[in-house]
Computed example of a mutant assay.
Amino acid sequence: MSFSAVFLALLAGHHVGDRWAQTDHQATTKGAPTLAGRLACGAHVASLTLCQMVLLAAVAAAEGGLAPVQAACGLALTALSHYWIDRRRTLAGLARALGRHGYYQRDPEAMDQAAHVVWLVPAALVITAPTPVAGVVMSGGCLLVLAVMEDLSRRGRTVLEVNRAVASATA
C-alpha cells in the first residue's frame, strides 16, 4: 500500500473518531486529572483507533496488501500519541516548554489537531515500512520522540505550577 493511501485512511479515521465516534462524556472528561479522565480518554482512543483500523482495512482491501506487524505498530503509535495529546495537561506543558503557551491558551483545539495530524505521518511511515523489522525500529524511534515530548511537557508544567503559586501568593 502506498504512503498516501495509508495517511489518508488514518486522517479520515482520525476525523471520524474525533468528531463522530467520541461521546460528549469522553470529550468533556478525557483531560481531567482523575481516573475518570484517564478512562474516558482511553475509551475515546479505543474508538478512534477502531475507526482508523476499519478505514485502513478498507483501503488495504481495495489496494491489496497490509503487513500485520507494521499495521499494528502504526495503529499503536497513533493510539499512544493520541492519548498523550488528549490528556490536555501534557500538550499544555509542551506548548509552555516550547514557548507556545500563549497560542495554546488562545486556540488549544488548533494545537491539539495539529499535534494529532503530525503523528499520522510517522504512523503511516511505520505501516508502509518495507519490513516488519523496519516498522518496529521506526516505532521505537517514535516512542523515543514521545518520551522527549513528555519530558519537555513535565518541565513546562513545572513552570506553569510555579507561576500559579507565585501569582496566588502575591494576590
Rank of each mutant, 00 (worst) to 15 (best):
S81E: 00
R154H: 04
G65S: 14
E109P: 10
L35C: 04
S139V: 00
D107H: 13
N163V: 14
R96F: 00
V159C: 02
V121E: 00
Q105P: 01
K30F: 11
D24N: 15
R87L: 07
A171M: 13
D86E: 07
A169K: 07
Q70D: 03
A129P: 06
V159A: 10
L152Q: 15
A40W: 06
R100W: 08
I85E: 03
A129Q: 05
T34N: 13
L75N: 00
P130N: 09
T170I: 15
M149E: 03
G141H: 02
A114E: 06
P122C: 07
L39C: 02
H116K: 12
R106A: 14
R154M: 02
V126Q: 01
G13Q: 01
V118M: 10
A40C: 02
C142D: 01
V145D: 00
I85F: 07
A124M: 10
D151H: 07
S153L: 02
N163I: 12
S2I: 00
V16Y: 01
S47I: 03
A12E: 01
C142E: 09
T23D: 04
L35Q: 09
A171S: 15
C73H: 01
D24R: 15
A147R: 11
A115F: 06
V118Q: 06
V133D: 00
T90S: 12
L56W: 03
T170H: 13
G156L: 04
V45E: 03
T131D: 09
L152C: 09
T29V: 15
G17F: 04
A92R: 13
P122G: 11
V148C: 12
A167K: 12
A67L: 07
D24T: 14
D86T: 03
A9M: 03
N163D: 15
H15I: 13
L10F: 15
A95F: 08
D112W: 03
G42S: 03
N163C: 15
W20N: 01
L98Y: 07
A97M: 05
S153T: 00
G42F: 06
D151C: 04
D86P: 05
V54C: 14
A58S: 12
R96L: 05
P68A: 08
S2V: 02
A134R: 08
A27Q: 13
R106D: 11
